[in-house]
């Protein structure tokens, strides 16, 4: 198991660096010049040719793609992600100052989704084709189909404007977290609930469920213990990918709620072609993706004895 984890981390190095190189390459294909776009944003009018040239030489932008890439990789070996062309701050500091907000939002909306979805999914599987099941089907269809920005605006209108219960934007207190977390959690819980329901229904046809019933176990033990544990693998996989997706930043929801996460900053950096930021952020986000996938894989082995990594049995 330890061997497997080390091996996976080693492989993930290539994934992470590869992802950064690809994003670097994509940025350099896009027409436009970083120096020009950053300077014009700073000066609020078109920069002079000398200014642009000076900026490019200062940041090594006049070099070819390969030289720039190798310089970046060299820096990376020293654990240095470079500095933002736009703000002049270190990329790592820029990331660390924004990431806690993103993490807070991602984890709380995931938790919210899991807490709402799993019991409801199990309930509608147990009572399938009953009124509860039909209602939950309609609600989850609604949850999946509703675009985030529309749900966000609805929530702001209802809870912020009409009822005046919650602040409509900002960051810092729990009450600020509620509306963005509910916005993001709704779509996710709708997906999770349907998945949980379908997984339980599939497992309920298995012979070992018949055995559990034949033993005289009550329905809660049969479903909550014997069936539920067998549905954890698909459910955990989906939770993992959804969480990783949220950790990479959610631009629209951050924008609507003025949430100071990484998504907003990253999009601004893409618009101005601030490529040290783009590469650095992609590198770190890729790292999170890899870690979450690894965690999900380890989770498989913990919960399903048939899955063992590395070596015999």
């Amino acid at each position: 198991m330890i061997k497997f984890i080390l091996y996976r981390l080693f492989i993930s190095l290539f994934v992470i660096v590869g992802a950064s190189i690809i994003s670097f390459a994509l940025i350099s294909i896009v027409p436009g010049n970083s120096a020009e776009s950053i300077l014009s944003a700073e000066l609020a009018n078109d920069p002079k040719l000398e200014e642009v040239r000076f900026f490019m030489e200062k940041h090594g932008l006049h070099n070819t793609f390969l030289i720039q890439l190798s310089q970046w990789l060299k820096m990376l070996l020293k654990c240095n992600l470079g500095t933002s062309l736009r703000t002049g701050e270190s990329v790592l500091i820029e990331f660390c100052s924004r990431f806690p907000a993103t993490l807070e939002l991602a984890v709380s909306s995931t938790l919210l989704a899991v807490i709402a979805a799993l019991p409801l999914g199990i309930l509608s599987a147990v009572k399938h084709n009953s009124l509860i099941d039909h209602i939950s089907r309609i609600v989850s269809l609604w949850g999946v189909s509703m675009p985030n920005f529309w749900l966000a605006l609805l929530l702001i209108w209802i809870f912020g404007v009409v009822l005046g219960l919650l602040p409509t934007y900002g960051y810092g207190e729990i009450k600020h977290l509620v509306l963005p977390a509910v916005t993001l959690g709704t779509g996710m819980s709708a997906i999770l609930m349907r998945l949980q329901r379908a997984s339980i229904l599939e497992v309920l046809n298995k012979n070992y469920i018949r055995t559990a019933r034949a033993k005289g176990l009550n329905e809660w033990s049969v479903i909550g213990k014997h069936a539920f544990k067998n549905t954890l693998i698909p459910v955990a996989t989906t939770i993992g990918t959804q969480l990783a997706h949220l950790l990479s930043g959610v631009v629209i929801v951050e924008q609507i709620f003025a949430w100071p996460g990484i998504g907003h900053f990253l999009v601004d950096s893409i618009n101005t072609k601030d490529f040290p930021v783009i590469q650095g952020f992609v590198l770190i986000i890729a790292f999170f993706y890899v870690c979450i996938n690894l965690a999900v894989d380890i989770f498989y082995a913990l919960f399903d004895p048939r899955i063992r990594y590395g070596g015999r049995n």
């Binding site: 012979n207 559990a212 034949a214 033993k215 005289g216 544990k229 067998n230 399903d304 004895p305």
Partner: peptide, 26 residues
């Protein structure tokens, strides 16, 4: 509920294909 008690105390059953009748994750 009464039937579950019967299954617990009065009637037991074993099946064909025993491996599929045991829960794989316990």
């Amino acid at each position: 509920k009464e039937m579950r008690q019967i299954r617990r105390e009065q009637i037991a059953m074993i099946f064909e294909q025993p491996q599929s009748c045991l829960n794989p994750v316990f």
